[in-house]
Design a protein around this nucleic acid. Structure first.
Lengths: 193, 193
DNA sequence: TGTACATCAGTGAACGCGCGTTCACTGATGTAC
DNA sequence: TGTACATCAGTGAACGCGCGTTCACTGATGTAC
C-alpha cells in the first residue's frame, strides 16, 4: 500500500480522510450499517489504525456529523455573502430541493440523512444546533425574512428531501420537491416572515 | 410467564404486540440499536419465538414502518372527516408541531424518527409512500390547499420536528416549532396552494 | 556525508461480545373416540 | 364425561458471524553524533 511520509501534518491529513470517508458511508448506508473496518478501508487504511485517530466509533460519528454539517453551513454563508440576496437564496434553495440532492445522499445534507440518528446522541447535538442556527442565519441574510421565516424555510427544505427519498417513484419525488419550491417562492420574493 | 391460550387469534394478537413493541423501541433508539431479543422481551416473550411470526428482522422493520405510519395516516383521515376543516387542520398541525411530540419520539411520527433509515430500505418504501399520500390528502381535505400545498405543509411539519429534536435547548426547540406553526398559519386560513 | 538510534503512523492478528438465526423441546389446548 | 393423541405457540440453549476494540509489531522518517 501507500507508505506514509511521516510527519504530524500527514497524520492530520489522514484523519481528515477518515472523517470524509466515514461521512460519505454513514450518509449513504446509515451509521450502524458501516463498520470501522469499512471506513478505514475507504480511507485507504487498515482498521487497526483507527484508534490512533479516534477514541471510539462514537467519537467519529460525532465528529463526522458536526464537520459535515459545518461544511454545509459554511457553504451557505459564503453564497449569502458573495451573491445578491435573491440570487443567493435561489441558488441555495434550488440546489437543496433538487433531484440530484435526493439521489446523492452520500454527499447530501446531514440533516436529511442522519438527522434522527444524530438527535439520539446527546453529545453530537450542540455542534449540530450551532450549524442549524448558522444555516438559518444564512437564509435570513439572503432575505428569507426574519429568524422564524428562515427556520420554517429550512424545515420545509429538510422535510421535503426526507419525503422525496421515501417516494415510490421519481415522479412523486419530483412532485414533493416542486411543492416545496412553490411553497418557498413567497419567501424568495421577500414576502416571508 | 403468561401461558398462551392457544388459538390462531391469540397468535395474531401476539404478532401485533411484537409489532407495537418494536415500533416503540425502533423509534426511540433506532433500528440497529434494538435487537430481536429486546423487541421480544418488550412484548413479554423470549427471542426464540420471533421466527414463528416473521421471516427476518428486516421483515419486521418493513412491517413496523408501514403499520406505524398507516396508523398516523388513518388518524389524520379520521380527524379530517369528523371535524370541520379549519378545526381539523388546527388539531393535526398543533399536535404535530408540539413539544410533546418532539419529546415523545417513541410514540411519534415515523417520518421524523425513522425517515432516512426507511428510505434506505427499498422494500419498505411503497407502503410508506402510500401513507405519505394519504397524510397529504387528509391535509388537503382539511382545506390546506391543493396537493402541492399539502405536501409542502407536510414537509414543513416533518422538517421542523427533525430540527426541533436536534436543538441544544428546549427554547431553541420551541422556537423552531413556533416558526413552523407561524409559517403554516396562512395555509390554515385557506390562503395556501 | 554517513551511521545508529528514537519515534510513531500504520499493520494485521487476535479478543470478547452481542447479534440474527436455528432447532429440539415443552406443555397447554382442541379434537377424536 | 373421560382418556389418548395431534397440534403448534412459545421456550431457551446453541450456532456462526461480524463488530468494536486491543496490542505487539513494522518500517519509514527525522535527529544526534
Amino acid at each position: 500500500m501507500v507508505r506514509m511520509r511521516g510527519t504530524r501534518e500527514q497524520k492530520a491529513e489522514t484523519r481528515e480522510r477518515i472523517v470524509e470517508a466515514a461521512g460519505r458511508l454513514f450518509r449513504r448506508h446509515g451509521i450502524d450499517a458501516v463498520g470501522v473496518d469499512a471506513v478505514m478501508h475507504a480511507a485507504g487504511l487498515t482498521h487497526g489504525g483507527f484508534y490512533g485517530h479516534f477514541a471510539s466509533k462514537e467519537a467519529l460519528v460525532a465528529e463526522v456529523a458536526a464537520a459535515s454539517l459545518a461544511r454545509s453551513a459554511a457553504r451557505w454563508e459564503q453564497i449569502s455573502e458573495e451573491e445578491p440576496p435573491a440570487q443567493a437564496l435561489g441558488r441555495i434553495v434550488d440546489a437543496y430541493l433538487d433531484a440530484a440532492h435526493v439521489a446523492n445522499a452520500e454527499g447530501g445534507c446531514v440533516l436529511t440523512t442522519l438527522g434522527p440518528d444524530v438527535a439520539r446522541r446527546a453529545e453530537a447535538r450542540p455542534a449540530i444546533a450551532v450549524s442549524v442556527r448558522a444555516m438559518a442565519a444564512a437564509l435570513e441574510r439572503c432575505g428569507a425574512g426574519g429568524e422564524a421565516a428562515a427556520l420554517a424555510a429550512l424545515s420545509t427544505m429538510v422535510g421535503a428531501v426526507v419525503l422525496a427519498r421515501l417516494a415510490d417513484s421519481p415522479e412523486f419525488s419530483e412532485t414533493i420537491l416542486e411543492a416545496a419550491r412553490a411553497a418557498l417562492s413567497p419567501v424568495r420574493q421577500g414576502e416571508g416572515g
